[in-house]
Design a protein around this nucleic acid. Structure first.
Lengths: 260, 260
DNA sequence: ATCATATGTTCAATATATTGGACATTGACG
DNA sequence: CGTCAATGTCCAATATATTGAACATATGAT
């Protein structure tokens, strides 16, 4: 039912969940915070947060940094993340693909995945354009805001999708609401065609292209281009072809465990 | 008192500690495992492991992979690790330094840190030598086995060092025991001279060089060269100079938080 | 068929983790 | 000075997480 963090009822929270809530919060903030601040901002009892922070510090999951008792994500997380990346050794090929894409199109190219029930940019190669048009790496973005979002949930049923995406994520940055049914229609279309493009609904001057990187029958990730609207429309076919090539080269090497 | 994982007494284990024990174990094994196997191999109650594995799966910390209900480290760990790496943005400079070192020396160059109370290779650039002489990235190695180990604990007092390093880690791979007092002497020497070199005690044909990457007054990491013995001895002064240059270039940019 | 092993699920007992609130300290401010 | 806010520590009460053991199922060997 619940995806990650629910401050719901009035019960006690499980330490493990609370701990990962803290880690996720620090990741979102992208800066060291005092335990007290963490407690206040995630709405958790201070004593609990102090207890958990100490536990996590002892395990190297958190580290003191920034002085004044501030803590941030620790080295052990780096090692664990590196092991994940190593197991599914996609980073090298991924960056090669982005490099190639950026070379062919001169546009900003991104490699995106789901992080829980949000969309996030995992790798990015900035284009030659003089302006900066993309979200930062690692930031969580509501799925309906993005072209990739249509593809990343395309393997689910309508009901699963609506249960998966938090209802408030259908509210666009401007404040308007996106009709869930319209979104589902686009999801089906994207899944069927094997790509999705649209004028960004996050800003008013970019056009977005997304194609799926297939793995085990569904979109495990997407490759995207973010372009100025006129460029995107003018080069649409060529850009799509580039993206599909790149995605195919990634997809055909699906999650292979590395041999030691 | 306890560093990370103690299956000591007869009491109940805390979920959080057990959870990270599972994660660390999977990282060590570097392969997906069934919950049952995990339980057996880390000596934890099966019901506890099943419970924790399910919790971790729900949070994306673990993922099903490899079929048959096997689990491995999950995508969320990748994101958390990436955030850590991003905060202390050393990876790019680090790999540049290794690249340069490898170019200048044609030897295998490594960037090493402590992971808990073990030594581990974080980044590596293989040399031009036709044989493979180094440990794998991310593997945990007893501190006394390595040249870098002398530097990485040099900021501690003798008592702290002996409390920090598990006693059995003074047993070398061949079975002989390294005298802790002799080790401490080498640590002091390394700390004083600002480098350490020796004929590897892990194998019989390499010579190791290590210099510290200083941060906040102590060795936060080391840069190392692993060379065939005769090459190492022949080029000792030049190699050391290269290493010190590289370490200085890394050290003078200490743990700077990235601005958003 | 019988036994052994590996795997996963369920459940009740109790050891303990989580929590609210009291307390201590510091610094800012009027 | 007194007051307020921010921060960290401490502690007892109780809700619950951890655990051993029983149970269920599958597979393979003898």
């Amino acid at each position: 039912m619940d995806a990650i963090a629910d401050d719901a009822g009035g019960k006690r929270a499980r330490g493990l969940d609370r701990a990962f809530e803290i880690l996720d919060f620090l990741r979102q903030k992208r800066q060291a915070l005092k335990p007290n601040e963490i407690a206040a901002q995630i709405g958790a009892p201070r004593s609990s947060v102090y207890e958990l922070v100490n536990l996590l510090l002892r395990n190297g999951i958190l580290e003191f940094t920034g002085g004044d008792g501030r803590v941030y994500l620790g080295r052990k997380l780096y090692f664990l993340g590196a092991a994940y990346e190593n197991h599914f050794d996609f980073t090298r090929e991924c960056e090669a693909a982005l490099e190639r894409l950026a070379g062919e199109t001169r546009e900003t190219a991104q490699f995106c995945m789901l992080d829980g029930n949000k969309y996030t940019v995992v790798h990015m190669r900035e284009g030659a354009r003089p302006f900066r048009i993309s979200t930062d790496i690692g930031q969580s973005v509501p799925i309906p805001w993005t072209a990739s979002g249509r593809l990343l949930v395309a393997h689910m049923t309508d009901e699963e999708i609506l249960a998966f995406i938090p209802p408030q994520d259908f509210q666009l940055p401007g404040g308007e609401w996106l009709d869930p049914q319209a979104f589902l229609t686009e999801v089906r279309q994207a899944g069927h065609e094997g790509f999705f493009t649209f004028n960004s609904i996050v800003d008013s001057f970019t056009h977005c292209f997304a194609v799926p990187v297939m793995d085990e029958g569904h979109a495990a990730a997407t490759l995207c281009l973010v372009t100025p609207r006129d460029d995107g429309l003018a080069n649409r076919d060529r850009y799509l072809a580039c993206l599909k090539d790149a995605a195919a080269s990634l997809g055909q090497a699906p999650t292979r465990p590395k041999r030691s």
